[in-house]
């Protein structure tokens, strides 16, 4: 497991996303849920991208899902050597949204579409910012 996220790119926090990153630093994956039309979505936004309602609340995700698709890169310019090969994936969360992430703690040869995974949260040097990644479910 990666101890800290650096020297990878660290997310930029804005007023709309601050709660998401703060929750991640507390070990929770937050989705956005529209109180009007019921859409559960990712990435976070203040207005529902289906009905434009501003009644959008946070919903804690279970943090589990399956791999929708993935790729394996042997080299990524600007990426730390010890992070290679890099598995980039869309994980389809149990709540529905497909979220981009890395799949870690696994031999890339063992990754496959449909693999059950669960979230882990990697700290950054910012106190209230951690990055969600996924590992094979126990």
């Amino acid at each position: 497991m990666t101890d800290t996220w650096e020297p990878r790119p660290v997310p930029e926090v804005n007023p709309e996303t601050e709660a998401f990153w703060r929750a991640a630093s507390d070990g929770e994956f937050l989705l956005s849920a529209c109180d009007d039309c019921g859409l559960v979505f990712h990435y976070p936004r203040s207005l529902c991208p289906d009905c434009f309602s501003e009644d959008v609340d946070w919903q804690q995700a279970a943090g589990t899902g399956t791999i929708y698709s993935y790729s394996v890169s042997e080299s990524v310019s600007g990426w730390p050597e010890d992070g290679l090969p890099l598995v980039i994936a869309y994980v389809e969360l149990d709540e529905g949204p497909r979220v981009m992430t890395n799949v870690q703690d696994v031999d890339p040869d063992d990754v496959e579409v449909g693999l059950a995974v669960e979230a882990r949260f990697v700290p950054t040097e910012e106190e209230n910012v951690a990055v969600p990644v996924f590992v094979p479910a126990e």
Partner: peptide
Amino acid sequence: DSFERIYGATNVPTYAM
């Protein structure tokens, strides 16, 4: 980018997905 590129998601790996 804060939800994608931070994972190393540039064009080749994403088209590969």
